[in-house]
């Protein structure tokens, strides 16, 4: 097949992925790696590197408006980012050292697990945090944002900060190893574990992802795993798709889109498993 067919196909698929990701409220990375890894001819090393860069660029694009509106918090993200950045380097090194078959199997299992978590998880819009723990107070992890829907300012503080650090260490390893981005894990960890209000958790998740994706991306870049013919059309496709997705957001039914995402994840996860077993 001619070379130009692949960037055109990537552009089309990632454009659709960008729309779906916005409508379903998931990061592009979690869709990109399993779907492109399963149905395109690129080796998983290149797909994982592209997935990280895709997650990074998407998070960077969204960050300015979220930060200005107070729906992402640097002071909440910063300590957790340092931990996940260190562990995502370890994840990237581990991913590059493992045999492809083992990695495909692990990816397949992980994607199926993510689909299960997304299906089962119930977010808490305003979790109750009776008392901020001393560690979070020492790190300045508290503040206030304006909730336009409620028409008032919402104060936030966090608890279980030590457990949060452990969770983000694990998330960093997985994100670096599989190039998935980490929005699917960041939001529940911030919201359900640490008691961050849902809106702030969603906004801060992207800023958190920036540090981890950057450190792991350097490892892949440094090893020669960044393939422009894969990376650039994908970034352009997802960014354009996300812009269309935002426009469609008012008319779409997110619950239905989310079901489509779950089906896609199950199919891609199963395909990755089969590839891992050489089927």
């Amino acid at each position: 097949m001619d070379w130009w067919v692949w960037p055109v196909a990537l552009l089309a698929v990632t454009f659709a992925m960008g729309i779906v990701a916005v409508l379903a409220g998931v990061g592009g990375g979690v869709l990109f790696v399993p779907i492109i890894g399963a149905f395109f001819p690129f080796h998983l090393d290149f797909v994982r590197a592209a997935g990280l860069l895709l997650a990074l660029t998407a998070a960077l694009s969204a960050a300015p408006s979220l930060l200005r509106s107070g729906l992402a918090s640097v002071r909440l993200a910063l300590p957790l980012t340092v931990v996940s950045s260190i562990t995502s380097i370890a994840g990237a090194l581990l991913g590059l050292a493992l045999p492809t078959g083992a990695l495909q199997i692990a990816l397949g299992l992980l994607i199926l697990a993510i689909a299960a978590v997304m299906w089962r998880s119930r977010a808490s819009v305003h979790p109750q945090v009776a008392r901020a723990d001393p560690l979070s107070m020492a790190l300045g992890m508290h503040g206030m944002y304006h909730d336009a829907a409620l028409g008032r300012d919402v104060e936030w503080k966090v608890h279980r900060t030590a457990a949060g650090f452990v969770a983000f260490a694990g998330i960093g390893v997985i994100a670096g190893m599989f190039g998935l981005g980490a929005g699917w894990a960041n939001v529940p960890a911030l919201n359900l574990l640490m008691g961050v209000p849902l809106k702030l958790a969603v906004g801060t998740s992207g800023f958190l992802l920036i540090g981890g994706a950057t450190s792991a991306a350097w490892i892949y870049l440094e090893r020669g795993a960044v393939l422009p013919m894969l990376v650039v059309p994908s970034i352009i496709g997802v960014m354009l798709g996300a812009k269309v997705g935002v426009r469609l957001l008012k008319a779409a039914k997110p619950a239905h889109v989310r079901q489509v995402v779950l089906i896609l994840l199950v199919l891609a996860g199963a395909r990755a498993l089969l590839k891992g077993f050489g089927i």
Binding site: P64, S65, L67, R68, S73, V74
Partner: peptide, 16 residues
């Protein structure tokens, strides 16, 4: 938003 959030937003926007 706090100053660190606003400055980060500006730097990220221009750089991106």
């Amino acid at each position: 938003a706090p100053i660190e959030d606003r400055i980060s937003a500006r730097w990220i926007e221009v750089g991106t």
